[in-house]
Design a protein around this nucleic acid. Structure first.
Lengths: 233, 233
DNA sequence: TCCCAAATTTAACGAATTGTAACAGGCGAC
DNA sequence: GTCGCCTGTTACAATTCGTTAAATTTGGGA
């Protein structure tokens, strides 16, 4: 479970340093850039979790960059800007930014706002095909589940749908409703026990003790919670 | 697809009106409340998508309400407050708020921030806290109770609610009323003995001697008091 | 001190919810 | 076609948790 990566894009060296300091202290990994072009180059081989973007960039229109990021990256985008007009904030947020912080700012607030964004993962790597969790690795492209002891088993498409749903929102309550909605196929129409059966089968495959499941908990009357520590790859 | 529902909780009528206006114009459904108790009552039969909460409430601690909302509701929570200190903002966000807007505000920005929150739907986050008390450790995320001797038992969601209530206010009298109000679910509506039964079951699980409970004392005619030494982790 | 009404405990019950074994239809491989 | 796997359906078992009601406790007054 590596620390979330926060990128800092600002042309003022002091601000970069201040943010990098505060974020490192808060336990994040950081990467700083002075120019949009450098930043965009870096994006080709890294996938940040949060992007701090200053709008007053020398080499590029910051808002355009924000818009592109919002569409193409799964990262949360936080604008940090000296422009204090309401209209600026509104358009920034409208273009896809998740938050808008006005200079001058307090680093503690930036950290708090970053944490708030990370609590609700934006779009968990939809394309990723492998996930690690609590002694297991799931390869969604090959429908294979491998334990750290090397035991290998397969899972079906229906089981994979449920597993993916859980792995994309670990430690969150997922209601039956949400499941029905988000699981494609016949399950969406059948209002009966198909859901439960899928989960039951998945639990068996994960070697859960039926009396005392550790990974997939049931909350009577509310839904399910997946309690693994998930890392997508 | 009905319009998202935004609740407004603020004791100033003008602010409620201004927000309701702007939000209706923006295409949202709204519901306004002047007091936390009214709001909480409404929550039992509606599920808002976004909750705007003013911290300066006359009848209740706003931050505590925010925390509870963050844990139990899937709604995005936006604090609107006159308190402009950085520390206020940080604690607000830390307690689970998704955004923090300072009065005076521009309704257009509120709308933009609401839209930003609605772009990434969220589900309730489970509280992964653990508490130690008198030879026991309660893991609320896993619904497990471990004694210092290593014995492990599970508790249900309903039992956990009661236990959490006690552990959050040790050595303080908790009236039945307060319990009813703060415990969600059907217990809130039932005016009967459901509460007592929950406590009775919890006592059993904690191995209390019915004749002489050491941890959960009954104060005849007044309520209950939890006498453990609690450390949260 | 004794008695009684109110408050509290808890065993037992049952409605609703959830788990899962067993069955059956669908579909591809051979 | 036959076999085997996937997956929804069914039926029944198990669990959760509020309700009921009987038993017990409490505290004030006779």
């Amino acid at each position: 479970m590596t620390a979330p990566l926060v990128t800092i894009l600002d042309d003022e060296p002091q601000i970069r340093a201040m943010l990098a300091d505060a974020l490192t202290d808060a336990g994040f990994r950081t990467a700083s850039f002075a120019r949009a072009t450098e930043f965009e180059a870096a994006l080709r081989h890294t996938t940040p979790d949060v992007c701090l973007v200053d709008l007053g960039l020398p080499d590029k229109d910051g808002l355009a960059l924000v818009h592109r990021l919002a569409l193409e990256s799964g990262a949360a985008i936080i604008i940090i800007s000296g422009r204090a007009q309401v209209q600026d904030r509104v358009t920034g947020l409208e273009l896809g930014a998740d938050d808008y912080i006005i200079k001058p700012f307090d680093p503690a607030e930036v950290v708090a706002r970053i944490r708030a964004r990370l609590r609700t993962p934006k779009s968990p790597e939809i394309d990723s095909a492998t996930a690690h969790f609590n002694g297991w690795t799931a390869f969604f492209d090959r429908y294979i589940l491998v334990s750290d002891q090397g035991e290998e088993s397969t899972f079906s498409h229906a089981e994979g749908e449920v597993l993916r749903l859980f792995l994309e929102a670990p430690k969150r309550l997922i209601s039956r409703q949400q499941m029905q909605e988000r699981l494609g196929g016949a399950a969406a129409e059948s209002f009966d026990r198909a859901m439960d059966v899928r989960i039951s089968r998945l639990r068996t495959k994960l070697g859960e003790d039926p009396k005392n499941p550790r990974l997939i908990k049931t909350i009577y009357g509310a839904g399910y919670i997946f309690l693994g520590d998930v890392t997508w790859e």
